[in-house]
Every structure is written in structure tokens, then in C-alpha cells.
Design a protein around this nucleic acid. Structure first.
Lengths: 231, 231
DNA sequence: TAGATTGTTAATCGATTAACAATC
DNA sequence: TAGATTGTTAATCGATTAACAATC
């Protein structure tokens, strides 16, 4: 690690999982060595950016050679702390929550240790083997089992209240699927998955691009012209 | 609209749904008027940024007064094209896909018109009233019904292939839940929801903050010290 | 050694913030 | 009118890209 003092910027951190995915893929394909420019071409980034990003954490390459795929993947695993598993609880086990359970069972870096819902059910989750407890049991459970991460799959109306509560019980990170922005002390981390925002952004991009194209093609052609993008 | 020519930057576009959420909330609370600085305080942004962002699309405020909440919300609705509904299909109706159906039934800007899965089921979706077709029917369906957006809830291994295919059938935007980066012609829009990346980022933030705190507090205190953030 | 490619510094670009004249 | 707050230009900040000396 190069500069253990200086904090790494969020844009860089957000690219790490993507690097990790691409490297894992290369590894799977038996590729042993890769240069920053080769990786850049595959990831549609610049070689400069890749070298800059990696050098926030250390000099993992070798001049004249490039990077060992396997070694670099290992370094990123370490940077992302994938050797540990953060104990996590899920609050809100509705359709979305249950869908996430499948994804989480194989996920690195995290381990589900408790499920909670307003309406507790004795139903044992097929993936985790956990049963769904009532939110009333949150405090006792947290104090005893010390989960660090909470996955919030509850409606926006309750999210802020529950989050505050959980922060008080020692939760330090929220994976927030509710459609609100949680207001929490700054030492608490939040990663939002704002599905509604996301689809609105896509809609904007699609509609907007359409408009642009109509402008540039002279627009006044009257009828719905198909476009079949090549490649 | 101020500068219909100049394209708006993505950071600005990505903030629009959030503005829309906050304004809808203010409206719901009966607040009629708001200044950029008041809104900035609520959203934890700078007043400058808000004024800059809005002015990409037009001068919606009034000097000495601020912004009409209701009117501004309406403008953003229009900017996001929420008066239209893009016809959309879902490909992959597993746990995650089904969970999204609930979210989409009330969503603005989009309307589901078809569901597809490798294993078609005659099961009619409770929200949409649509039944699940086989992927084999995609081409015919698209050519006939001209969906514009595809929601991809399929495993990464198939996503690239299906996406190319769909692009050929006229799909212009992808809401991509598969854990791969789709390579598509640049005129096609993609909005990724990379859940695995997202949880890794959260894990990094939590672990990293923990490390920082241990450094600053002198670290060598031995035992798991509780932290209960106030406020 | 010569060739390739990194690590790193410097230059550029773009986004955010500050400042203030315009104006309601 | 005086006060408030915008729209907009200028300054700052940060992130990306380019360049190149170091080095494998």
C-alpha cells in the first residue's frame, strides 16, 4: 500500500468492483498477464486512469511487463476487504428483500445473520436458513450479535426512523433500497440503490437521445422511422 | 428551456430525480415557495449547485422570491418526460424480476407491456396482468409492439447476447440488473443497477472508515469498543 | 541491451462553488 | 423603494488525461 494516509476518492472506489469483475473474468479465461492499455481497451477506460487508480493503493505492476492478472485480482480483493465478511441484517423481507437473499447467499464480503420484518413469519429462508423475526426484536438481536451492516428493504416512510434506531444499535453501514435519502451521522456509511431514480434517469436518456436524433436528422419527416443500430 | 442545443451533463441529469423527490415532498407538505438556499439545506447541496442545475433547463425561479414548489416540480416532470410512458419489456422474470414488477406498476415514465423468460409460465402477473412468454417470442413481439426499453433481470452469461438481439429488435434503452457491462452501440442507453458492485462499495466504505477510526483513536486499545453515534 | 510498460508528475478538462449584477 | 434571491459569470477545486523518466 502506497499512501496509507491519504484517503482515496469515491470515483476511484466506485470503479474497484468493476476492475475486480474484469480481472476475475480474465483469470477465468486463463489470461495471466495484462497491460494497462489492453485492460483499458476492454473496459473502455484510458490506460492512464487505470494506472492512476491502481497506484492509489500501491505499485502492483511491473515495468515492461504489465500486471499479473491473478496477483492484481488478489490485491483488489484485499483492498475491498473480501477476506472478511461483515455481519449483516436485512430489515424488510418483502418481494425485493427475498429476491436479494438469493444474490447475497453467494456474495463476498458480507454474511446475513438476521432477517426482520414488521410481520414476522416463522418461514425459514431457503438460502440462509434464517427465520424472519419481528422488528421488535431488533434491539436485543443487535446488542447480542453485533451486526455491522443493515439492508433496508422497507418503504420510505419508515426507513429514516428505522435507520436512526439501527444506528443507535451499532449499525455502521446501510444498503438502502428505500426511496429516501437517509439523514445519519457522517461516520455512518450509506450506499443507496434508488430504483425509482434509476429508471427515471434511463427514461430521460432514452427520450433525450431520441429528441437529439430527430433534431439532427431534420425531424420533419413525419413518420415513425425504425432504427436498427448496426454492430 | 434555455439552451436547447447544449447537452446537459450526466451529473446534473442524475440529480434530477432527487430534486423531483424533494419537491414532491415539499408539495405534499403544503410548502408553496422555496429558495435555493432553503432547498440546499434540506438536500445537503449548495444553493449555487441547485441554481446552476436548474438553469441548464431554464430560468424557473423569480428574483427576490425563490421558486414556486408546484411549478418547479412540474417543470422537472416535463424535463424527465414524465408525461409520456415508455413501453417496456422485462426479460428474466425470476425472483428479482418479480420483485421489480411491484415497483414498476406505480412507476411514472414507463409502462410494462411484456414479460419474457427462458421458462415461460402461463402465470399471469398480479400487478400487470401480463403473462410470461418465452424468449423465443421476443422478436415477433418486439416487431409488433415496439417496446423501447428492456429490463434485463437475467444472469450475466446471457445478458450480452440477449441485449444485442434486443437492440436489433429496436430496443433503445436497457435497465440492466445483470452483473456485466453491456457492449452496445453508443446510440443505445444503458442504466446499470450493479447490485454486487454496490454491496462491495458499501463494504469498502464500512471497513475503511473503521480502519480510519482505529488509526485516529490510537488503535492499540485492545477491545471492541462500541460506538453509538449521537444525533 | 533494446523494447515495453509502469509509476508519477504535469497539463487539461469538467464540475462545483463563490460572487455579484440584474431584477422581482 | 429596500430587501431578497435569482441567473450568470468568474474562480476554485478535483478528476481525468497526457507525457515521460524510471525500470523491468
Amino acid at each position: 500500500m502506497k499512501n496509507p494516509e491519504q484517503t482515496v476518492s469515491m470515483p476511484v472506489v466506485r470503479r474497484l468492483p468493476r476492475y475486480y469483475r474484469f480481472l476475475s473474468d480474465l483469470k477465468k479465461n486463463g489470461i495471466v498477464r495484462i497491460s494497462s492499455s489492453e485492460l483499458a481497451a476492454r473496459m473502455r477506460l484510458t490506460a492512464s486512469q487505470i494506472r492512476q487508480d491502481l497506484n492509489c493503493f500501491g505499485g502492483f505492476g511491473q515495468q515492461g511487463y504489465g500486471y499479473h492478472v491473478d496477483q492484481l485480482a488478489g490485491e483488489i480483493e484485499r483492498i475491498l476487504y473480501l477476506d472478511r465478511k461483515l455481519p449483516a441484517i436485512m430489515v424488510g423481507v418483502g418481494n425485493l428483500g427475498r429476491a436479494l437473499l438469493g444474490h447475497l447467499s453467494g456474495a463476498k464480503g458480507i454474511k446475513l445473520i438476521g432477517l426482520f420484518d414488521k410481520a414476522p413469519r416463522p418461514v425459514t429462508d431457503i438460502h440462509t436458513g434464517l427465520e424472519v423475526m419481528g422488528v421488535g426484536q431488533l434491539e436485543d438481536f443487535c446488542l447480542e450479535n453485533k451486526p455491522v451492516v443493515a439492508i433496508l428493504c422497507i418503504p420510505g416512510e419508515h426507513a429514516q426512523y428505522i435507520a436512526r434506531q439501527l444506528a443507535g444499535y451499532g449499525i455502521r453501514g446501510f444498503w438502502n433500497f428505500s426511496n429516501v435519502d437517509l439523514q445519519l451521522p457522517k461516520e455512518i456509511s450509506v450506499e443507496n440503490v434508488h430504483l425509482t431514480d434509476s429508471i427515471l434517469i434511463l427514461g430521460y436518456k432514452v427520450n433525450n437521445r431520441q429528441e437529439e436524433m430527430e433534431e439532427s436528422t431534420g425531424s420533419a419527416d413525419g413518420e415513425g422511422h425504425e432504427q436498427r443500430p448496426g454492430e
